[in-house]
Design a binder for these strands. Structure first.
Length: 562
DNA sequence: GCCGTTTTCGGCCCGACTGTTTTCAGTCG
């Protein structure tokens, strides 16, 4: 949805950054950021409607967007790009470095990339610079390291989007699909693998696409490119008769394939991307299912292919019936423009109904997240609006909830008599990320023990590529969640992907239940649930483990039973 | 640069934290 919207939003965001770095007025910077967010979250394709219908877009920004749609950039953006080197903007991606400090370092020391900054610190060139003490240097180095270790990978949302875009751009293919870690729904992706059956001219079609920045290698059967987003995409042509074995081979994981080939070798067979063979005889090749069946095991869903017990289970016929997108009956964590969402209550509810949900919770932020300016009056007024809306949606139960803030001591916003008025309370950590493991563990356990808290939202608070997970003794937290019946969230927002699948699997062993939530701040975000389902599948979850697959009555029983 | 039943001008998300300063600027959520 809305690829053009995302591209235009990215350009405006870049312009906002550059405008801030060149001393632009802070309110104007915010206007560009606000417009970018609104465009990205706008449900209609802005190349098909007048962009002026998007709130926060006036005449000046509309002109810029229109020029961008014409030629992929706009005059003012070009001008600022010429003033600020790319690497200087990259400096602001280092945690603790904003536009002011980045530009200061560039002007004072000519530092024009994170690498140059690391070198400068190593050589002691920052010593004595105004505003940069030893603590700052330490934090910057930590930030650069974080950037370096995550910089090569993108989150699944970016990769999936790209994979779908590549597939849609090659209509000449008879068959085309993505394999690799995207198909396995891994939370971060190194490169995108696409397999196709079709004419050789497909390779030329591929190289000519506008998303291609550089062709790394190109032959008759395989072409590798780097896209404008900096992601490597490999396209392979495979024989139609080998489609299944090629998909199997290129889906991986490496560990899974090693085990599978070992099983073949033991029977005197050979498995390659061209098929499963006994001598010259083809045992299976066209369909992936046939390969697994020939080995006497169930077909293994790609998210389980990590050599994490799937062979043992598949040989016994005991693979779990994994939760699917179609199983989900509702969303339990969403926002509106009452706090930091960009769509109105009415728009979000209508979009939820259009998705066919049986229930839908509105969970805007609570007063302790001061920047959201939530008040008791605003919250109660929203509840009234929601109750009135309910009449228009007889098939969908509307739940009035909130996303509470878990304070450093584990307490949450609002007194008990207010909390008891909500249908559902999600509680999440939004600050004080660097508490010690002991303090953080106590904080989460206290939140679980709060009788009004139903769900712990985005538990590790990580942001892929930006912020590491908080440190807690998760076994203790999960035991507390299981004991108190507190649901743990799988936040499906792809840069959060939180809980991550390895922790979900661990939590499940403690008997914890989960909710897969979009944490949507706009209408298009509601579609992110599929990424949460990927996490759940990688963690072996069934529908029963996920409370928002439950029928509404069973869910309400759980929420009311504290 | 956007927006408006309190305004077509004068506001705009506001407070905490950090590391540095010696009263505060920059960053973050």
């Amino acid at each position: 949805m809305g690829r053009v919207n995302d591209d235009a939003a990215a350009a405006l965001e870049e312009y906002a950054d550059l405008f801030a770095m060149t001393g632009g007025d802070a309110f104007r910077v915010r206007s560009y950021q606000k417009a970018a967010k609104a465009i990205a979250g706008h449900p209609e394709d802005i190349s098909r409607v007048d962009v002026r219908v998007v709130p926060g877009v006036g005449e000046a920004i509309a002109k810029k967007v229109e020029e961008f749609l014409q030629r992929g950039s706009f005059r003012q953006l070009d001008a600022l790009r010429a003033q600020v080197p790319d690497g200087v903007r990259a400096l602001t991606r280092i945690a603790s470095l904003g536009p002011k400090k980045a530009v200061f370092l560039y002007h004072e020391l000519g530092i024009d990339s994170p690498e140059a900054l690391a070198r400068a610190i190593g050589e002691g060139r920052l010593a004595g610079l105004r505003g940069f003490g030893p603590k700052s240097e330490e934090n910057i180095l930590k930030g650069i390291e974080q950037l370096r270790t995550s910089g090569e990978r993108v989150h699944l949302g970016v990769a999936m989007d790209l994979a779908e875009r590549v597939i849609a751009s090659l209509p000449a293919a008879e068959k085309i699909a993505c394999a690799g870690s995207v198909r396995r729904m891994k939370e971060t992706i190194g490169d995108v693998d696409i397999l196709a059956v079709g004419p050789e001219s497909l390779m030329d079609d591929f190289k000519r696409q506008p998303y291609v920045a550089e062709v790394i290698a190109s032959g008759a059967l395989k072409t590798s490119v780097r896209t404008v987003q900096g992601v490597q995409v490999d396209l392979r042509l495979v024989p139609a008769g080998s489609w299944g074995s090629a998909m199997q081979y290129f889906t991986g994981s490496k560990m899974h394939n090693v085990r599978l080939r070992e099983m073949c070798v033991k029977r005197g067979w050979k498995l390659s991307e061209y098929g499963l063979f006994e001598g010259e005889r083809v045992i299976a090749a066209e369909a992936e299912e046939d390969i697994y069946a020939a080995l006497g095991m169930q077909w293994v869903p790609p998210p389980l292919r990590e050599d994490g017990g799937e062979f043992e289970a598949a040989l016994r016929g005991a693979l779990p019936e994994l939760v699917t997108v179609d199983d989900l009956k509702g969303d339990l964590h969403t926002h509106t423009d009452l706090t930091d969402g960009i769509a109105t209550l009415e728009e979000m509810v209508a979009a939820a109904a259009a998705r066919g949900y049986a229930y839908y919770a509105v969970t805007d932020h609570a007063p302790n997240l001061f920047m959201q300016r939530m008040t008791l009056e605003k919250m109660l007024e929203q509840r009234e609006r929601l109750r009135r809306l309910q009449d228009s949606y007889p098939g969908m139960r509307l739940l009035h909830g909130t996303e509470l803030n878990i304070a450093p001591d584990g307490s949450v916003d609002w007194p008990a008599e207010v909390l008891s008025g909500f249908d559902i309370c999600v509680a999440s950590v939004h600050s004080h990320f660097t508490q010690s493991r002991e303090e953080m563990t106590r904080r989460f356990v206290a939140a679980c023990e709060n009788p009004y808290v139903h769900v712990i939202g985005h538990p590790t608070t990580r942001k892929i590529g930006k912020r590491p997970p908080v440190d807690a003794d998760w076994e203790t937290v999960f035991a507390a969640a299981a004991r108190t019946g507190t649901i743990l969230e799988i936040d499906a927002y792809p840069d959060r992907a939180d809980l991550p699948s390895d922790l979900v699997r661990l939590a499940r062993h403690h008997g914890v239940r989960f909710s897969i939530d979009s944490d949507a701040h706009s209408v298009p975000h509601l579609g992110n649930l599929r990424f949460g389902v990927g996490i759940a599948q990688r963690a072996w979850l069934t529908g029963d483990d996920v409370v928002n697959t439950w029928p509404v009555d069973r869910l309400l029983d759980l929420l009311h039973h504290d």
